[in-house]
Design a protein around this nucleic acid. Sequence first.
DNA 1: CCCCAAAGTTCGTTCACCGAACCGACACCA
DNA 2: TGGTGTCGGTTCGGTGAACGAACTTTGGGG
Lengths: 180, 180
Amino acid sequence: MALGTDYAFQDCSLARTLEVVGERWTMLIIRDAFYGVHRFNDFLVHLEIPRAVLTTRLQALVAAGVLTKQPYLRSPVRYSYVLTQAGRELWQPIYGLAQWGERNASNGKVRTIFSHFTCSTRLDRAGNCPACGGPVPPEDITIRPGPGADASLRKDPVSRALARPHRLLTPLQLTDGTAG
Amino acid sequence: MALGTDYAFQDCSLARTLEVVGERWTMLIIRDAFYGVHRFNDFLVHLEIPRAVLTTRLQALVAAGVLTKQPYLRSPVRYSYVLTQAGRELWQPIYGLAQWGERNASNGKVRTIFSHFTCSTRLDRAGNCPACGGPVPPEDITIRPGPGADASLRKDPVSRALARPHRLLTPLQLTDGTAG
DNA sequence: CCCCAAAGTTCGTTCACCGAACCGACACCA
DNA sequence: TGGTGTCGGTTCGGTGAACGAACTTTGGGG
């Protein structure tokens, strides 16, 4: 059992969850999956994670039922890693952790703005739409950089694609520099 | 920088949060703090965590402003670790992660039941009270073991104290076996 | 004086993470 | 046919965090 995954004696559902998503990098992989990243190399470039670790994490998440691995190219065979329904249900706590970071560990900078796709209203800290008055599922959320985002930090294609406003859970469209 | 805390290149609030609470054991320490654990030795016994790791984690959480260290005994001097306001705001995502674990990684067993103190209604998966129709702050939540809890797993005094119904954020009262 | 408890510190071993190199399948190009 | 490039890995040596046990410090009680 990996170092970060053994809380077996803890009769607690939080410990069960952390055995699945509590290791280093795992939540950032899931966050990227929500943002639309789905290819091995895109995770690799965007997270700057060691390849072997990414392989291990993706396998573990597939085994846990958080992600599924689907071929998106026959020849050469290439795989997509996409969130399952169980994986999508992690949106609320992940959003909550990110919002806590915005309030408590970001010097007041708003790095990312989440809006309700159908009405463009910004979500509140619980992930609800103040206009529509209810929780918003991730597929109905638009993400765009906020005023505190630092575009100069990352210039790789994945980061540039993620910096364009887009809906969660829609597969990322990579455009190289030549396309304008 | 510790192994689990360096995501500096990630211009992302989730990464900022994980630098604070993303290391092994840290979220379980915060969970225990919500449940009323506040002494070094009680964390140690309940989590079965190496002493050096607990020392490191508590210091980091105090430095991050999640916990504060307060003397509760003058002689010999003994310290309480209690959640700050920023720490209490972690309740929603931690509750969300625990609920995800109940649904997806617990074989359908309900280990813990969270209720609204003022009306005894069970909270929904978002942490709201269905009867009162809104989010419930942790200090208004009652916790008690559910039918899936395995009382035989842990017999230490801290586990027994935590197994009694009580409100979150109230300091744990340890009763030894002799008190009946 | 001896034993106990709380809250650490120290230390040797183990093991996960890290980065770099390597590998295999396939596409494209000349 | 060979050279080059991409994608999705695997392998491997070095580093450093986690682990558990032993030790320390401060004070209480008999």
